[in-house]
Structure formats: C-alpha cells, structure tokens
Design a protein around this nucleic acid. Structure first.
Lengths: 329, 329
DNA sequence: ATCCAATGTGTAACCGGTTACACATACATT
DNA sequence: AATGTATGTGTAACCGGTTACACATTGGAT
C-alpha cells in the first residue's frame, strides 16, 4: 500500500503539502496541487483512516446498540441509519445487547477505545449518569432514557389511544390489552394510553390487561388464557405487531374468527403486517424516518451543530389491514 | 483519558514495561507487574485501540456486506456473526449494498482504509479478481462467487429437489416454480434443482416457471398470471419464503384454498414462516449456523489457521407448516 | 573463575497521518 | 525604501500504542 510519504517523494514535495492537497487546507500552489493529484492517481493512493483517527481522535464511525437485530423493528432502523451515515462517509458498527446491561456497558467501553464518534442506542437499563460519564455523543431510539438525552420515538401513549379509539369506532365493546414488558418505557406508555381510553368505561376490568414479552409463544399462551377467562372480549390491542400475530394465532386456536369475532390491532408497522393472513391493522411508526432522524441528530451532535429538539416524537399513522372490521350493532 | 504514558509515569516504569504487562509478552518481574496493574486499575486505564491498530495494521473489526439488512434472512445471519465476533473481541461493521456493484466496491475501499481485518459478503456482482486484488480475507455467504473464495451456504439444488419431491409426495400433480432473479446463484441453483425433478414428467411445461424478484407485490402479480393461465397447477415451489407469502396471497385472491387447492412450499426458513396463516412449509436453511460458520471461517483465515473446507454446504431441513397437505388420489 | 542463558527494564524507532511553526517570496501600501 | 499581508512550502512534533535492540543482573554449568 502506498503511503503519504511515498506520494510526497514521488511528487518531490513534503508530506505536509500532500496532506494539504488531500484536505484542501492551507495554501497550495495550483501547479503543485495538480502534480500531487497526478501522483496520487498514479499510485492509487488512499489515505489511511486509522492514522488519521489517531491524530484527530475521531473515527468517522458510529455504533448502533439494539437488543437484537433479529427483532424485525430494528433492521429497518439500522438500514435508515446506515443510509444517512454512508452518505456522510460515516460507518456503522452493529451491536446486539440482548437488553443486558453488562453487554451494553462492554460495548460502550470498546467503542470508546475505538474512538467511535457517537452511539445510537435502544436501551432500558443504561442510566444517564453512566452515559454522561462516558462522554460520547448519544441518541436514544424507541425508548426514552432521560430528558438530558436526545431521543427519537413516537408518542406511544397517543398511538395507543388511537388504537383503542379505532377499535371502539369499529364497534368493539370490550377491549383488552396484551402489553409488553414492564421495564420498557414504550410498552409502559402504550399501556398507559390504553388505560386512559378504557378505565372509565363501564365494562373495563383490570383483568383485561395481560403482560407478555415480545415473544410469540408466550403471547399465544397469555392470550388464550385471557380469552378463555373472558369470552366476551371482542377487541385486543397488542403491545406490538409480533404480539398481534400471537394474539391472532391464539384466537384461531380457540376457533374465533378474525375480525368477525375478535378485532386485533398491533403497534409498530413492521413489514410483517402485510405478510400475514389476515393482514394486521396496526399503529404504524415511521420506522425508517425514526432511524434517519436519529442518525441525523447524532451527526449534528458530533459535528457540533445545535440540535433544535431534544425529543423528537414522530407521528404515527393507522394502517388498516383485515384484522379489524367495522361491525354492525 | 489516561494513556500508557501516564500509567508508566505513575508506576515509575517505562511505557515498554506497561505494554508488556498489558500484552503478557516478554519478561516482567512479578512485583513490577502488580504495581503496573494497580496503577492501571487506579487510573481506569483502557488501551487505545486505534493506536494499536495503526501499528499492528489490524483493527479487530470485520465488515458484513449484505444487499439489504431489511430482508429478513440477513438479520439472523448478522446476529450469528456478531455473536461469534463479540466472543472473540471483534467488532462488526454493517454495510447495505442494494446489490449495487459500485456500493460494494466503495465499501471495500473504505474498509481497506480502516484496516478492517476481513469481510463477509453476500454478492452477485463482485469478481474474484477484484477481491483478490484487495487482499482482504473474505468469506462469501449464501451466494457462491468462485472456487477460490470460501463460501458458506446450503446445497440449493438439493434443497429445491427436496421441495419438489415433498410436494410430489403429498400428491401434487402439476408443480410450478416462481423463481428468484437470474443473476443470483442461489436462485439459479434452486431453479436447476426444480428442473431436474420435473423436466421428465409428462405434465411439465416450461410455462410452469415464472421469474419474480424477491419483492412481494411482483410475486403476487406473476403468480396470479401463472395460475390464471394454468388453473390445473396444484403445487408451487416459491424461490424463497417471502415469495411464498406472495404466492399464497395471489392464490387467495383467486379464491383458491391453501393447501386444499394449492400447496405452497418456500425456501429459507425465516421466522416469518411461523407467523403467517397458514404457516409456511419451507426448506429451512440453518441460518444462524451459516452465519456462525462464516464468522468462524473468516477468523480462521484472518488468524492464519488452515481452513478445512473452502466450501461449506450445510444441511437443509424441511419445516412443515400448513401450506402443504397430503392429498388423497 | 568464566561463560552463557534466562530474566528484567529502558530507549527510541515506527505505524501513517495532521498541523503548529518557521521561513521564503511576491506584491500592495504608505 | 520600508512595512505589511497573502501565498507557498518544509521541518518536526504529535496522536498512543508496539517492539527491536541495547544493556544490566542473576544464577547455573563447566
């Protein structure tokens, strides 16, 4: 591989001049510039990023820490982030934390040692103190951490309310909720939104809320129990789209028709929704946009621009499938 | 951030000694070692990876280039790779190529400049010459490039034959194939496998093969046309699971019942299969294993171990869902 | 007593860039 | 003619590690 030194020799100038040509900094005579450029071309010289990073203390790299890239919500976020980054000559490092605090911290450590310029993270366990202390620019996605940390998400509570309102508008009389894990802020907010919409209804019982994790089999089980114990439930708001699949499967196992006997609405708007039968009605997040706004915000932070907002709450939209249907009285 | 120099001063030794302690190389007196370790602890010193990389010309980083992480096959591969890497203190860079040769080359260029130690790639466009020339250890996944380049995949032809055999065994009499893009080796192999199984059948017509890409809407369209023109087709082998979803949707649009009127089998075994209704019967690849074997092979290559095989062909298994069903005569 | 190997440590070059600073020249201003 | 500013280029320090090599000491073998 050719180095800046070889280029300098070949072009009969100093390395400083070559560096100036490369970075368009300082003064360089037009003649000299051309000569250097020609030599660079001839030697197919590409500057070494590592050497540059060492001096500049920055690597043109950012890390994305997600619980599990296998969860279909995250690939789309990752794709959006990578699109923004690659257009700005940045590179993306992918980390799977399994929602494990130790792993998250390990990654932070490693990233710091690698002069990673910033981190986009989906976490329920990291504290603002820890993050502050690391001193790396950071943006949270999907799950809120602390007012001091920029976050890109949707208004989960509002979205949940919309979901319940929609079920009501289609004629559902008794609406249950299979919620996500307690320690996850977005799941909590969705639950709170659901609660606001139903708690003053005469039919509401706390037994209508069941807790699942984001795993399908467990959701099936929980839902079966719910439906067996409450056969008059005619609408279910699932904590997310994967859980909606579980809910639908459970209902089918019990011989319920969807949407005739039971309406199901999910949350997230992952592409899975359009692949199932029936297609799932869902509160769709602008997932790609979440990723790209997060990436853009992080770059703003890194490059020292002022960011307009600390907390972006993007708009959800309702995406109607066949898992819900307007029912007559 | 503390540096090796600060540690050296504090411990009243030279940086060389600190380095020896860090890397367990050369001779270090036990007393000295303890003192250095103590200072490292006190200062919470973490060696700078970038500086080390510059000298060692390696970054403990590998890149994964996939067409699009949004395609559900790849997150699982990525996850497996990352699991292997992180257990060996390596880090994963994620790149989306969109099957675009220019983007792939751009990534290779950047990775080289970053001293990335190796690349795992899913590509249809890169030539062995180009790869050879870059001089970076590389492993291909899913799509074969050249005998000279290690590749981890399944035997697509064999798998396709199994798919068709299975459809036959359930009583299908006229089996069509919605194949994937022509330039993709795995799609081509699956097509060839299909062909071997059907070409000598009295009922076979070349019209039973239609070309889709891996996009759902297009698959629906192509399948509708196929079924309209050939109403007696009673089994379809789809090029992959996503396309199987499209096939099922198309069939349903035409009022066909699955599996009663039409059996459908996919290929890949992505988790989507278990989420649809009916669940999709598919030739399941050991996706996670593909990723982990690829990662392990790449590390072997990087760390100079001899690799046993250039071409790993892992075993497929048939995963039975409800999209196929044994039919009476 | 002599020699050699094993042990222990420090100095300085090196990896490949960036940039502060020094220095030289050209040209405009007073 | 003297001064100041813009232009152009090179030298060398620096980023934070690793390691070749030099040198010193110790202890066992001959």
């Amino acid at each position: 591989m050719s180095t800046i030194k070889k280029v300098a020799e070949e072009a009969k100038v100093s390395v400083a001049t070559v560096s100036r040509v490369l970075n368009s900094t300082g003064y360089v005579n037009e003649e000299t510039r051309k000569k250097v450029l020609k030599v660079i071309e001839e030697l197919d010289y590409k500057p070494n990023s590592v050497a540059r990073s060492l001096f500049k203390k920055q690597s043109m790299t950012i890390a994305l820490i997600v619980p599990n890239i296998t969860n279909p919500f995250f690939p789309e976020v990752a794709r959006a982030i990578e699109d923004v980054l690659s257009s700005k000559e940045y590179t993306l490092i992918l980390c799977n934390s399994d929602d494990n605090s130790e792993k998250e911290k390990k990654y932070f450590e490693v990233m710091k040692q690698k002069y990673v310029d910033g981190v986009i993270v989906v976490t329920s366990t990291l504290t603002p103190q820890y993050i502050e202390e690391k001193g790396i620019p950071i943006v949270a996605v999907d799950r809120f951490i602390d007012p001091s940390i920029p976050c890109v998400s949707v208004n989960n509570m509002e979205g949940a309310k919309r979901a319940v309102q929609y079920l009501k508008s289609t004629g559902c009389k008794r609406i249950a909720h299979i919620r996500g894990p307690k320690n996850i802020t977005s799941a909590e907010d969705r639950y709170l939104g659901y609660l606001q919409e139903v708690e003053s209804e005469y039919w509401f019982e706390t037994d209508y809320v069941r807790c699942g994790n984001f795993n399908i089999d467990q959701t099936i089980e929980v839902t079966r129990k719910l439906l067996e114990e409450n056969p008059d439930v005619d609408g279910i708001f699932a904590g997310n789209d994967m859980m909606a699949v579980g809910v639908i499967k459970a209902a089918m196992q019990l011989g319920k028709r969807i949407p005739e006997d039971l309406s199901v609405i999910g949350f997230d708007g992952i592409s899975l929704c359009k692949m199932t039968n029936p297609e799932i009605t869902t509160i769709a997040q602008p997932i790609y946009e979440i990723g790209s706004v997060a990436a853009q915000t992080l770059l703003d932070l890194i490059e020292g621009r002022v960011i307009e907002k600390k907390h972006y709450q993007l708009e959800v939209t309702i995406s109607k499938g066949q898992s819900t249907k307007t029912r007559g009285e």
